[in-house]
Design a protein around this nucleic acid. Sequence first.
DNA 1: TTGTAGGCGTTATCAC
DNA 2: GTGATAACGCCTACAA
Lengths: 338, 338
Amino acid sequence: MTGEKKSLGQRPRRVTAQTVAEQAGVSRSAVSRAFTKGAYLDAEKRRRILSVAAEIGYQPNALAAGLKGGNSHLVAIFAGDLRNPYDTAFVSQLVGSLNAIQKWPLLIDGNGARAAQALEEVLRYPLDALILRGGSLSGEIVEQCARYGIPMISSGRPLSAPGVDTVCCRNDQGARMGAELLISGGRRRIGFLGGPPELYSSCERRAGVMAALEAAGLRPVAEAVGDYTVDGGHAAARALLQEAGEIDALICGNDAMAIGALSAAREIGRAVPGDLAVIGFDDIDMARWTCFDLTTVRNPIDAAVREILRLLEARLGDPGKADETVFVDPVVKPRGTH
Amino acid sequence: MTGEKKSLGQRPRRVTAQTVAEQAGVSRSAVSRAFTKGAYLDAEKRRRILSVAAEIGYQPNALAAGLKGGNSHLVAIFAGDLRNPYDTAFVSQLVGSLNAIQKWPLLIDGNGARAAQALEEVLRYPLDALILRGGSLSGEIVEQCARYGIPMISSGRPLSAPGVDTVCCRNDQGARMGAELLISGGRRRIGFLGGPPELYSSCERRAGVMAALEAAGLRPVAEAVGDYTVDGGHAAARALLQEAGEIDALICGNDAMAIGALSAAREIGRAVPGDLAVIGFDDIDMARWTCFDLTTVRNPIDAAVREILRLLEARLGDPGKADETVFVDPVVKPRGTH
DNA sequence: TTGTAGGCGTTATCAC
DNA sequence: GTGATAACGCCTACAA
């Protein structure tokens, strides 16, 4: 009824402050102020403006606001593996926490060949920060981010580049504690089922296990490499247990593989924990399900996410602050498989 | 060394096209064109510009570009439950697929009281679309989105509002097929462990089960309500099996509860599938793990995500297109628990 | 092929 | 308190 041209099949233009101003009989600035907490504006006028805005469905355009130079409130999360249970739980928690402080996470699937390119595309947005969760990103890209001046927080592995904060689990310590638990329980013929050797966490965990064994005058009686998945752990454990039948304990690089190992043990007829102790790493939800009741080492998500948010806010508050590396302490969770 | 003022502790300004233009000795527009595929620009000049840009780390600011009126390439995903395995897998797949077509998903955790408010905040961005995955959003908000002219795609439950496309699983049909599988296997004393009654999927699945039973002249010998989690399913199944010992089959509202039910059955000493058949719904990864080998009804994520992307692109191509409701067909996955 | 001149929607600064 | 006005960084007619 307005008589304005309205080409069919065209997406309607977003309502702007201009329209609200006209309808309310005020200036654009007044509209802007109405939405700005603590700006000088007659209370009655503000009420009127907000009412008109609500009526015609106006919201300040965050893109335009971000353009002005402030923060965009956009935070990218580069997630190494969105399929694995630990990373998934981690990202979920992170997303919820970011939402709570009004930061909006742009999720990038770190899997596949396109991942790096996707990240590059997302970097076209003036991000408040970039959070790296696992995944193997070429150092080149990290450097580029640093050059763009985008604050980065790496979680899961240390990254030494200017402007990068890091939150890491003390993987070696956790793995050592896990191994010690088995050793102190009398296990001597210990096997190790590690994760992908190219991952930082795998190396650290392996080192922790070896340190504990060595300190006890032991050596692993068998060792294999898995892919951090349940299926992979199942297959690797099966092979390991059949080749080296004399194993009395199996230390796994993460819970997923440990759960796969439990199935394998059951299939082969090895009683857990009687014949065979199994220990994992991470303490994913599944670990405490009664059907698994897996003894593991907790890789605390809450603490890590809390630290990430603390670092984020600190960095946003003072972009020039010194880079930090924060460690999160693992905790042994004795359950029924050792 | 440039002599420019550089207040310490200040985040460096982003490099703009202006800077590139100056360094390369061309106009700002030339820089813009250099980054625009198919724009008129001397090849040599373009090469020079791109080289300068790469050197000083310039990328066109996507925010500013989006302001112009084109697509922002931002897509919000409102995820009902980021903790449950099915939704998690769904969102992962969706994120990966969106990344592949250069759409950047803003994830909103649909849990908790802040969810609606978070969505409202995110709506300040000129989104290309909003994808609803589960969750219970007040109709008011949905209406508001429609008024903003933001295309919406609802997955998991039908939403009748203008501009909303829907992708749904034929829950009733799937549940019916699952029940029929048990009935044709000779089971007669069938129990039903449903999901939260306020969820659309729960109602549909329950209806499908009841229809199948009725068609066979049966009635459920016991019924309980769970919360779609493993723990919840475990507790509910335990109670159900102990109260009504004569059950020979248990139909569960989803796989998570079915897996909980399997543990419960084992604890109580009911052999599966000998004494008791168990069937789930969804076919999450876990269902096919050898330790569960759960008979279930596949709620196909691939197909649903594919449809969502198809609808998204169709809507983006023609904003005025008619709303669609697409159904995705469930598939019975017979495994070892029936 | 190239540069100039708006305009996108907002916020902040400035006079009034 | 309030309203013009100038950025913010980009894209794109339009003119050269």
